[in-house]
Nucleic acid binder design. Structure first.
Lengths: 170, 170
DNA sequence: GTCTATAAGCAGATAGAC
DNA sequence: GTCTATCTGCTTATAGAC
């Protein structure tokens, strides 16, 4: 039995925020709609924020923590890239940030989404000694996910490989 | 009075496919919901496909045509990048491909979306002599749009500049 | 804590007057 | 070709039994 928040997250990733109905969330979690409201009295928006919390936890462990580890920069970068490959399942898994920032309710999510992105780019910028290059790397990953979904799955692995060989080069 | 299809396109860009209600499309176009169905008897999906046709026209003129022009590769690339800057309004405008591929109805849109991406990467790949690099460049643009929407507007101009200086380098 | 039942409203879509 | 009015079904959300 998969965790309720994970099932909610998967549903938002698949259908988007506006496209994910309470019925779909209910089916994915195995809980009745009313039970979902028992767990998330603030409704659908709170479910999305809980999914984002879950993303933050996992992303922190898989992607950000390796950046704070010991070892030379190239090693930490490669550990981050390996974490990204796992986190996004080789480019087959969508990004919740994209799904929520593209929703009609984006204003309700903007602050936490910006904070999530910033946590990543701050940690990466520290390793690179360059904040802009960290933002650019995040953009490269996000774009690879979009284009992978548009029928070009190999772009994701290629992007990881290119970041590994070029992100520390001046 | 802006064109009806342009108003529909803007609404899908702002709210996403699932987030754009017929009421919102009606308000944006100034037409009643029934009038929208007179123009698009196949309903909301047909409105999105008409918006995509409009994107294809404009993108063809602004971005793809410069790639087929005469002149050295660097000149053609820079003309394409200038077209992208106009087309996406310096990164402030969203991409319809992202909005439609992220919808719960993505399967209905997949073919035309893949075709739109391919038209671009084919033309760019011809100039570069490398299909994969063309796909990677498209990913860079898409990612810059996502991250720009996440509160980092300068990433778009930086991405255009980087593509200009590096896309032809081996 | 999950359920059935239901509320109130909006969704996409249609009929038919003008 | 646009309108008012309407249909059906699904939406988010709630009440209250168990």
């Amino acid at each position: 039995m998969p965790d309720v928040t994970d099932a909610i997250l998967d549903t938002f990733l698949r259908d988007g925020y506006d496209g994910a109905s309470l019925s779909a969330l209910s089916a994915a979690t195995g809980l009745g709609r009313a039970s979902l409201y028992h767990r998330f009295p603030e409704g659908k928006r709170a479910m999305a924020l809980a999914a984002l919390d879950r993303v933050n936890e996992r992303f922190g462990v898989e992607v950000i923590a390796p950046l704070h580890a010991c070892g030379p920069p190239q090693e930490r970068i490669d550990a981050m890239l390996a974490g990204l490959d796992r986190f996004y399942d080789g480019g087959r898994r969508a990004c919740l940030l994209e799904r929520l920032i593209a929703s009609a309710d984006r204003d309700a999510f903007r602050r936490p989404l910006v904070a999530t992105l910033q946590a990543w780019t701050d940690a990466l910028g520290l390793v690179l000694g360059d904040a802009e290059r960290a933002v650019d790397a995040a953009a490269a990953i996000e774009g690879a996910l979009v284009v992978a979904a548009l029928g070009r799955p190999t772009v994701f692995a290629r992007t990881l490989a290119r970041l590994s060989s070029e992100i520390l080069r001046r």
